[in-house]
């Protein structure tokens, strides 16, 4: 979710306020530069892509829903610009694959986050996404308030990194049974929260107890 300050900036930019535009650049240029520099080491190219990203943001302003987190939105635009740049300069690693896959990958990469005509419907997907995000926020906030970062680490490694129980246990130096217990309790709780939101939890295989 965007901060009130970001929403105000966007509102002022929509009204053509150059000072607000300058503030937006001062606020986000550095982190965008660092995000792009992770993939592209050429300083001048990075600066060009940062600039393209801001121009891209400005161009997309009529379609930007300012309830969306502004930083994440800018990173998404930058990510597209990185792919475009690597593709244009023939430096995308997947372009170098010998099989027919290279171009197909790139084509699909370019359209991955574009508006999609998904089979299950964008609206349904948004509902599921919101329900899961709300349930997870609820769970993670409880753990954070208790200072229980161990559970948070376990769940993040399982869900975000996709590690197996045994790898999580080894890495965190706890037993596999402890990992399994944390997973079981979290999945049960998430399932309850998602169902309380009126959605079936079985849309996500990860939430099968």
């Amino acid at each position: 979710m965007s901060t009130a300050s970001d929403r105000l900036l966007v509102q002022q930019i929509r009204q053509g306020d150059e000072r607000a535009w300058e503030h937006l650049i001062a606020r986000y240029e550095g982190r965008l530069f660092a995000f792009i520099h992770r993939r592209i080491k050429d300083q001048a190219a990075c600066e060009d892509i940062v600039q393209d990203s801001f121009v891209g943001f400005y161009t997309s302003l009529p379609n930007y829903d300012d309830r969306r987190d502004l930083q994440t939105y800018l990173f998404t635009i930058a990510s597209h610009k990185i792919t475009d740049y690597l593709r244009r300069t023939g430096r995308h690693p997947l372009q170098q694959t010998a099989d027919e896959g290279g171009e197909l990958f790139l084509h699909k990469l370019a359209e991955q986050t574009a508006a999609s005509s998904v089979a299950r419907g964008q609206e349904r997907r948004e509902l599921e996404s919101t329900a899961i995000a709300r349930a997870l926020t609820n769970l993670l906030d409880t753990w954070r308030k208790q200072g229980d970062y161990q559970r948070l680490k376990v769940l993040e490694l399982l869900f975000v990194k996709g590690w197996h129980n045994k790898d999580v246990a080894k890495f965190l130096d706890i037993s596999e049974q402890q990992v399994a217990n944390i997973r079981f309790a979290a999945v049960k709780k998430l399932g309850e929260l998602v169902r309380a939101d009126g959605l079936p939890a079985d849309v996500f295989p990860e939430l099968h107890v």
């Binding site: 987190d69 994440t72 699909k108 991955q112 999609s116 998904v118 089979a119 299950r120 419907g121 964008q122 349904r124 997907r125 599921e128 996404s129 899961i132 995000a133 997870l136 926020t137 993670l140 948070l152 993040e156 869900f159 975000v160 990194k161 996709g162 998430l190 996500f204 990860e206 939430l207």
Partner: peptide, 18 residues
């Protein structure tokens, strides 16, 4: 992903929950 399937991990990342 094209067919609209998503994972808990992808939602976690997109919403930057942690």
């Amino acid at each position: 992903r094209d067919r609209g399937e998503h994972t808990v991990g992808a939602i976690w990342r997109r919403h930057r929950l942690s």
